[in-house]
Design a protein around this nucleic acid. Structure first.
Lengths: 195, 195
DNA sequence: AAGTCTATGTATAATTT
DNA sequence: TAAATTATACATAGACT
């Protein structure tokens, strides 16, 4: 009897899997692996994590820890706060769909990425020399020119922050979402977003 | 000489790491591992992923794939009806008259005075403790809460700027002004906010 | 904080059930 | 279609730099 022993795990190139069936299997396995890693990181380090995955099929998978509030409501809850400022928000009590929430999260992440790049550039400038740090100096020492630059910088910064807050909070200014919790054996206390 | 060979990777319980230093190392390693897994999943399966991690220190780490546009554009596509941002930074190619230019300079002087007072207050805060200087930190180090505070501060600043502008220029709805490049040593190419 | 090294724990590609 | 198997690739704990 020839028993063909498994070759075991084989090395693969990190490139888009072409065999569709194969891809589906890999996606499923690696997605759960990713979520498991995330949950471990949560537990080990006591951090809050949110993950959103848009599958090729258009499905949305997401992971959040530990409570819904920690990641999502931190945005949604600010609604009232923002309302009191000069943002023009339309009152609505429509309940957001989870995909919409995920879009918002995704948007937020991208915004954060953009800000990160921006700040990296600023960091670089900082490393290039102290002389350019007019924007770190006390305001009373600034020349008019510098003050204008400061103002412009702040406007730029504010604009981007504003846009993202506006879209996250104001873009769907509505009641928070109820997320169901699975009694999964692997993960207690993790709350999953149900697509 | 006793060379102590490494025990190699040891099994650990998935529970909050108590040794703080240890935790930091693990957080850093596993975070990067998680992001790597995520990027592989992106590539292998052609999916879009966003991850946000709030560290215990309040820092925010995030991962997004593939391009900012891919996700944000989807979002922005439906944002138009909601946007109505409170910030109207309008570019205009209208050339300001000299009287208007003077008004702007006047405005700047007033603004400078206001900022001077403001900075005195901030200076006082600075003396009270370094911990409050979240707004001096690079953006990527800001928590979402701090981002919100930053935004609010900027809202305040802009509001006062707007009031000044209204008072000085006349409070009337007028076309935004752009200062033409005057060759002036002090000011060139500034764009002004339309009140 | 970030990188190296070793030994070992884990994830998973390919296959089988 | 999904679960189990197996052998290997990869991740990482701990110690050190």
């Amino acid at each position: 009897m020839s028993k063909k022993p498994s070759l075991g795990r084989q090395k693969i190139k990190i490139a888009k899997i072409q065999i569709k069936n194969h891809l589906q299997v890999t996606f499923s396995k690696r997605r759960s692996g990713l979520f498991k890693k995330a949950s471990e990181l949560c537990t080990l380090c006591g951090v809050e994590i949110a993950i959103v995955v848009f599958s090729p099929a258009g499905k949305v998978f997401s992971f959040g820890h530990p409570e819904v509030e920690s990641v999502t409501d931190r945005f949604l809850a600010r609604k009232s706060n923002v309302n009191s400022s000069n943002l023009h928000l339309v009152e609505s009590h429509q309940i957001a769909s989870v995909p919409e929430l995920n879009l918002q999260l995704m948007y937020m992440v991208n915004e954060l990425e953009a800000e990160k790049k921006r700040s990296e550039a600023l960091d670089q400038m900082r490393k290039d020399g102290q002389s350019q740090f007019w924007w770190e100096a006390p305001i009373e020492d600034l020349s008019l020119h510098e003050l204008q630059q400061l103002k412009d910088s702040m406007e730029e910064l504010k604009k981007s922050v504003d846009i993202h807050v506006n879209n996250i909070i104001g873009g769907s200014d509505r009641a928070p979402i109820i997320l169901s919790s699975t009694g999964d054996s692997c993960v207690d206390n993790y709350i999953w977003l149900c697509p």
